[in-house]
Amino acid sequence: MARPIWTGTLSFGLLNVPVSLMSGERSVDLHFRMLDSRSNTPVRYERVNAETGEEVPWKEIVKAFEYQKGSYVVLEPEDIKSAASEGREAVEVKAFVEADSIGVEYYEKPYVLVPGKKAEKGYVLLRETLKRTGKVGIARVVIRTREYLSAVMPRGHALILMLLRYPQELVDVDDYKIPQGAATEYRISPKEIDMAEQLIASMSDEWKPEDYRDEFRDRLRKVIEKRMKSKGVVTPPAEDEADMPENAATNVVDFMALLQQSLASKKRTPAKSSAAKPTRKTAAKKKAAPKKKTPAKKTAKRAPARKAG
């Protein structure tokens, strides 16, 4: 059983539903290793200092931003964490929009939201309401250290969290030379359009994803099998399923009262399970802030200068 990426809450209005964030995709790529053709031994990628040519151990490697050619500012792990949202392990819905108002170019990566113990009622309530209204929830979610924009939408019996691209990540199609105007401007006759419509009608079918396979991968696997002199299957040890904490939203919560309060106040509260964590993190940030302001300016130099032996 796959491990959850995190266990936290899905919140909308004053309702908090314990959930686990699970991956919604699996990798089926065939992975290759680079070998030395002279001896068929694996080739390693090493972390090498650009000036000395010496290998650099992981403990000596830091992250830096190159703000101009050859000049860097070094960032500590705490600096990156401080930029992340305080609402970790939570999907807090900020608004509901029409499902068809989001262009397909915004959709990026799927995850599955799995309800926690005794949290089925709140989960089903949101799922069925989204189905009836044709809406999707727009939320922010932190996965590992990065914050993403996302859409919460019903899919069958499940709630899917789909990562969305920000507008800044998309290329404006006007940057490319795209033919504009009516079909007549390109000497396309009504008869040609009719014939094209007939062709599309003759090729029309229902969308059945199971009918499609990665044929390149299948053919490549056959090539690999022909090359193999021996076969072996390695089965990884079973992973323990993470326990889901029982918290705020269970099947005995007075959902009607929470819904009425949400409508009356029109306020959205952060997930209860994450309320305690930000308090400690915020206090830690305030204590650490004075120490980082002065060093941050001094580190605006070349990264190699940090290496002291």
Rank of each mutant, 00 (worst) to 15 (best):
D172H: 07
A276E: 13
L75V: 02
A95P: 00
P4C: 05
R3M: 01
I80C: 03
M195D: 14
M256G: 14
Y123I: 07
K298F: 05
V28K: 15
A119W: 04
V136S: 03
I61E: 03
G181Y: 10
A284Q: 13
I102R: 04
T294L: 11
K121R: 15
K292Q: 12
E51Q: 12
Q68M: 05
I160F: 01
V17N: 02
I224N: 01
I160C: 00
F96Q: 01
I138N: 02
R302T: 02
L10A: 06
A264C: 03
E76Q: 06
L263W: 03
A201Y: 08
P42T: 06
A50Q: 13
A271P: 10
A249C: 10
V252I: 08
K266I: 10
A182G: 09
V114Y: 08
L161A: 07
P278A: 07
V142H: 10
G53S: 03
F32Q: 09
K59R: 14
P179A: 10
G103H: 09
T145Q: 13
L149V: 04
T133A: 06
E98M: 07
D243T: 15
F96M: 15
G53A: 05
Q68I: 00
A249Q: 07
V62M: 02
V43T: 10
K281S: 03
A119H: 05
F216M: 07
S262P: 03
A283Y: 04
P237I: 05
K285E: 05
R155P: 00
V173P: 07
E120F: 01
V91E: 06
F12C: 04
S189A: 12
K177N: 09
K222Q: 13
A303F: 08
K307Q: 02
P18R: 08
